[in-house]
Simulated scan of single mutants.
Amino acid sequence: MLVHTIDEDVSLRLFTKDDAQEFFQLTIDSKAYLKEWLGWLDYTNTVDDTAKHIQARCEEIAANGGYPQSFAIIYKGRIAGTIGFNTMNNASKIGVIGYWLGESFQQKGIMSKALKAVIHYGFHDLKLNRIELHVATENYKSRALPEKFGFKEEGHIRQAEWLYDHYVDHVVYGLLAEEWTSI
């Protein structure tokens, strides 16, 4: 199993089918918290839903030439969340990163460490030329991350995502390989 150790507390690793129960429980425990910014939570209702999601992530590896697109974020031996490339355009060498952490893992610097590692992976291992993040305009906590790592705010997409009972606009952030300095 591929594991990338970031420090003594935080690592990234591939999801396995054995993660379904723990990842499902993290999702359910954080559901009310995550619903503010994530629109897919009503589609995760059983461990089997999570197992199917993990299986799809495993299948991405073969479709991407043996390179994984997404990872479990591990904090002190427990799954804390996930990060990875929601979409990749291999012809144009562009990846779009998505991420989330369970509510009990917030404010520990975990996501900063994970994002830095995935940006490095995208530019150095996947040989991407451009990495994007799309973040709800009012999700200031999440917007702080791309800004911290030198992403440029490139524009807004109006009514980009439906969140249960309303639309939210997105800010599009971009970072080019030539701009990445491994902050």
Rank of each mutant, 00 (worst) to 15 (best):
A144V: 13
A51C: 10
R130V: 07
V96Y: 04
I74Q: 10
G150Q: 10
I110A: 02
F151H: 04
D29G: 03
K152W: 03
W40H: 05
K116N: 09
I54K: 05
Q69N: 05
H124P: 02
A63V: 01
H120M: 10
K152Q: 07
K31D: 06
N90W: 13
A114P: 05
E132I: 03
L126K: 08
I94E: 03
H156C: 10
H53V: 06
W100A: 05
V118R: 05
A136G: 11
N90A: 12
A160F: 13
I131N: 01
D29N: 14
D125L: 13
L115F: 14
G122D: 06
I61E: 10
G84M: 00
K93V: 01
C58I: 15
Y121A: 08
C58W: 12
G39C: 00
L133R: 04
N139V: 12
Y140H: 14
Q25C: 04
Y43A: 10
Q107K: 15
A136S: 13
F24E: 05
T27P: 06
E59K: 15
V96A: 11
R143E: 07
S30C: 07
G122S: 04
H53L: 14
A136I: 09
I110H: 05
T50E: 15
R158H: 06
E154R: 04
K108H: 11
D29C: 04
G150Y: 13
L126C: 11
K116Q: 04
R130L: 11
H124E: 15
F24L: 07
R158W: 01
R158Q: 01
E60C: 10
G155I: 15
S112W: 01
F85L: 02
M111I: 14
K127Q: 15
G109S: 12
G65S: 11
G77L: 11
F123L: 10
A114G: 03
T44R: 08
G77K: 10
S104E: 15
T137I: 09
I54M: 07
K148N: 12
K116H: 14
